[in-house]
């Protein structure tokens, strides 16, 4: 009995060690989205090219990426070329121009190419709040039925696509 008592501090130490070890190397900024498994919230946004109102029913009938971007966002600049590659491979990407100026956004797409099948304007960032985003870029995988399957915060590159996003796009 007494021997067991002696070992209690050691056991506590081991237990804490295991807990802390599991947390090592984890991205502290990572936050699971509260919306995974739910449908894309109801929205009405303006289509940048046609100036018409777009709502949930107008979204693609296949799995697609919903990418929040803006011209003021340096990381968006970094991922833009790769999004272009994905679009060429046939990935359907819907862009949301988040808290941005439409003229600047149009110029940006004209200069760098447009990887998006559809660009929606969220000038006030209300749709961003509904989607629970904390900044740009953020990319969601959405199913053909409009269900949110995955959320990635930060730049999408080949590694992110292959390891995190691709598996959800069926």
């Amino acid at each position: 009995m007494k021997k067991i008592l002696f070992f209690i501090p050691f056991l506590v130490f081991v237990a804490l060690g295991v807990v802390f070890y599991q947390q090592l190397g984890k991205d502290t900024e990572y936050m699971p989205s509260a919306l995974v498994g739910k449908n894309v919230p109801e929205f009405k946004l303006v289509n940048m090219e046609s100036d018409t109102v777009v709502s949930n029913g107008d979204m693609p009938n296949e799995p697609y990426l919903l990418n929040f971007w803006a011209t003021w966002c340096p990381s968006c600049s970094a991922e833009h070329a790769y999004l272009g590659e994905l679009a060429e491979q046939g990935v359907n990407i819907v862009g949301v121009d988040y808290k941005d100026e439409p003229p600047a956004a149009k110029k940006w797409l004209a200069e760098r190419g447009n990887p998006y099948s559809l660009v929606l304007l969220d000038e006030m960032g209300r749709f961003g709040v509904d989607m629970g985003i904390t900044g740009a870029p953020e990319t969601f995988v959405v199913s053909a039925e409009g269900k949110i399957l995955y959320r990635h915060q930060g730049v999408v590159d080949a590694e992110v696509w292959e390891n995190l996003l691709k598996e959800h796009m069926q």
Binding site: T28, E29, M31, K99, G125, G128, V129, G132, I133, T134, G135
Partner: peptide
């Protein structure tokens, strides 16, 4: 503030 690890909405000036 969802963007910041340890600030409330009142203290943070992050866009969100």
């Amino acid at each position: 503030c969802p963007k910041c690890q340890n600030q409330n909405l009142e203290d943070s000036n992050a866009g969100i």
